[in-house]
Amino acid sequence: MSPEFDGRTALITGGGTGIGRATALALAALGCLVTVTGRTEATLRETVDEIEAAGGRARLFVADVTDEESVRAAVGDTGRLDFGVNSAGDSGGDDLKPLADYPTEKFDRLVDIDLRGLFLSMKYELRQMREQGFGSIVNVGSGAGLVGVPGVAGYVAAKHGAVGLTRAAALDYAADGIRVNAVAPGLVETPLVATGRSPELMAARIAAHPIGRIAQASEIADAVVWLCSDRSSYVTGIALPVDGGYTTR
Rank of each mutant, 00 (worst) to 15 (best):
G7M: 13
G7V: 12
R8V: 08
R8Q: 07
G15N: 03
R21I: 13
R21A: 11
T23E: 00
A24Q: 10
L27A: 06
L30V: 11
G31D: 03
L33W: 12
V34W: 13
T40M: 11
E41F: 09
A42D: 06
V48A: 04
E52Y: 06
A53H: 14
R59K: 12
D64Q: 09
T66V: 15
D67G: 11
G76E: 15
T78V: 14
F83C: 00
S87I: 09
G89W: 08
G92F: 12
D94F: 04
L96D: 08
K97E: 08
D101P: 15
P103D: 09
P103N: 07
T104I: 12
T104D: 13
E105T: 11
V111A: 10
I113V: 14
R116K: 15
L118T: 01
L120E: 01
Y124N: 02
E125P: 03
R127P: 06
E131Q: 07
Q132C: 14
Q132I: 14
G135F: 01
I137Y: 00
I137K: 00
N139I: 05
A144I: 13
L146F: 15
P150H: 11
V152K: 02
Y155I: 07
G164M: 15
L165I: 03
R167Q: 05
L171H: 02
Y173Q: 00
D176T: 00
R179W: 07
N181R: 07
A182R: 02
V183S: 00
A184S: 02
A184T: 04
G186S: 08
G186D: 02
V188R: 10
T190E: 04
T190L: 06
T190D: 07
S198K: 10
P199I: 12
A208K: 05
I211N: 00
I211H: 05
G212Y: 13
G212A: 06
S218F: 10
D222V: 07
L227Q: 02
S229C: 04
S232T: 02
Y234R: 00
V235T: 00
G237S: 08
A239N: 02
P241C: 02
T247D: 13
